[in-house]
Deep mutational scan, measured.
Amino acid sequence: GIPATNLSRVAGLEKQLAIELKVKQGAENMIQTYSNGSTKDRKLLLTAQQMLQDSKTKIDIIRMQLRRALQ
C-alpha cells in the first residue's frame, strides 16, 4: 500500500491541482475575451497568455509529484 504520509501529500497535491486547473480555465477564458478586443486589450491578452503558460507548467509539475507520491 501507500504510506499515510504520502496519502496526505496526495490530498494536498490534488487540492493544488484543482486550483491550478481553475486558474488555467480562467486564463483561457481571458484569452478568448481579449483576443478579439482592441489594442488596449493587448497587454491583458499577453498577461493572460503568460498566466496560462505558468499554469500549464505548474499542472505538469503537480502531476509529476502526484505520480511519484503514488508509486
Rank of each mutant, 00 (worst) to 15 (best):
I19C: 12
R9C: 15
L45N: 01
A4C: 15
L44N: 07
I59W: 00
K56I: 13
T47S: 13
L70F: 04
S38T: 14
E14K: 15
K56P: 00
I19L: 12
Q65I: 05
E28I: 12
V23G: 02
N36L: 05
E28D: 03
S38G: 10
A69K: 02
S38Y: 07
S38R: 03
K40T: 06
A27I: 14
Q16N: 04
E14S: 13
K40C: 10
M30G: 02
E28Y: 08
T33P: 01
Q32W: 06
S8L: 09
R9S: 13
D41V: 03
V10F: 02
L45P: 00
R68Q: 14
R68A: 13
N6D: 15
K58H: 02
L46Q: 10
A18I: 07
I62Q: 00
E14N: 10
D54V: 15
Q32E: 07
E28M: 09
Q32L: 08
A48T: 02
Q50N: 07
D54K: 12
G12E: 15
I19W: 05
G26F: 10
T57W: 08
S55I: 10
L17Y: 02
G26N: 14
A27V: 13
Q16E: 07
L66W: 01
L45G: 01
S38L: 12
M64T: 13
E28G: 01
S35C: 14
S8A: 15
K15D: 06
A27C: 11
M30V: 04
R9A: 12
L13Q: 00
A69D: 03
L46R: 08
S35W: 10
G26Q: 15
M30N: 04
I61Q: 10
K58I: 03
S8P: 07
R63W: 08
S55M: 02
V10C: 13
G12Q: 15
T5F: 10
K22Q: 08
R63M: 14
T33I: 14
L17T: 00
D54M: 10
T39C: 13
I59M: 02
K22L: 09
R42Q: 14
A69T: 05
L45D: 01
I62L: 13
R9M: 15
K43C: 13
P3Y: 04
I59Y: 01
I2R: 09
L45S: 01
Q71M: 11
I19E: 15
T5Q: 10
D41M: 03
K22T: 07
N29M: 08
S35F: 11
L17H: 01
D41T: 04
L70W: 07
K22R: 10
T5G: 09
T39M: 11
S38H: 07
L52T: 01
Q32V: 10
A69G: 02
A4W: 03
L17G: 00
L13D: 00
K15V: 04
A4L: 05
D54L: 09
K43V: 13
K43E: 13
K15L: 10
A48E: 01
Q25S: 06
L21K: 03
L70S: 05
Q50T: 08
L52N: 01
L17E: 00
L44V: 05
V23I: 12
I62H: 01
D54Q: 06
M51A: 08
L70D: 04
A11C: 15
N36Y: 13
R9I: 15
S8G: 10
V23L: 07
E28N: 03
Q50L: 09
R63K: 09
L13V: 00
L70E: 06
K58F: 02
L21P: 00
T33C: 14
D60I: 15
R67F: 14
Q49V: 12
L52P: 00
P3D: 10
M30Q: 04
T57Q: 12
L13C: 03
V23R: 12
Y34V: 03
Q49Y: 15
N6Q: 10
R68M: 13
L66M: 03
I2H: 13
R63I: 13
A48H: 02
A11I: 12
L66P: 00
E20I: 09
A18E: 06
L17A: 00
L17N: 00
K43L: 10
T33E: 11
S8H: 12
E28R: 07
K24W: 06
I31L: 05
L52H: 01
L45K: 02
K15C: 14
Q32F: 04
Q25F: 05
I19D: 11
Q53C: 08
I19H: 09
A48S: 02
E28K: 04
V10R: 06
E20H: 07
M51V: 07
A69C: 08
A18H: 05
T39E: 10
I62V: 02
I31F: 02
I31M: 04
Q50K: 11
N36I: 08
N36F: 10
L7R: 10
Q50M: 06
L7W: 02
L46G: 03
D41K: 02
T33A: 11
L46E: 14
L44R: 06
T47R: 11
G37T: 07
D41P: 03
A11L: 09
L44P: 02
L46C: 12
E14A: 14
L44H: 06
K43N: 14
A4N: 14
A4F: 02
M64P: 14
R9Y: 15
A27P: 00
P3V: 07
L46K: 06
G26W: 06
R9W: 15
L17M: 04
K40D: 05
D60R: 14
Q53V: 11
Q71W: 04
T47Y: 09
D60A: 15
K56A: 04
L17V: 01
N36S: 14
M51P: 00
E28W: 07
I2L: 09
L13M: 03
E14M: 15
Q16V: 03
L45Y: 04
G1D: 10
V23Y: 06
G12W: 15
I31D: 00
L44M: 10
T57H: 12
T5A: 11
G12S: 13
R42E: 14
Q16P: 00
K24E: 02
P3N: 10
S8D: 15
Q53F: 08
R42F: 07
L66K: 01
I19K: 11
T5I: 10
R42G: 11
L44Y: 06
N29I: 13
T47N: 14
K56L: 12
I61D: 06
Q71S: 11
I19S: 08
G12I: 15
L7I: 10
R68L: 15
Q71C: 13
K40G: 11
A27N: 01
Q49P: 00
L13A: 00
G12A: 15
K56Q: 10
A18P: 00
I19V: 12
A27F: 15
T57V: 11
N29R: 12
K43P: 06
T39H: 08
K15H: 06
E14T: 13
Q71A: 12
A48C: 04
A11Q: 09
S38K: 09
A69M: 08
K24Y: 13
L46A: 11
A27E: 01
R42K: 07
V10A: 03
L66T: 00
P3G: 09
Q25W: 08
M51S: 05
M30H: 04
M30F: 05
I62Y: 02
Q32I: 10
L44G: 07
D41C: 07
R67E: 10
G1M: 08
A11D: 11
I31V: 08
A4T: 12
K24M: 13
L66H: 01
Y34P: 01
N29T: 08
T39F: 09
K43R: 08
L70V: 07
T47V: 09
S35P: 03
S55R: 00
G26V: 13
Q16D: 05
M30T: 03
R9D: 11
N6V: 12
D60M: 14
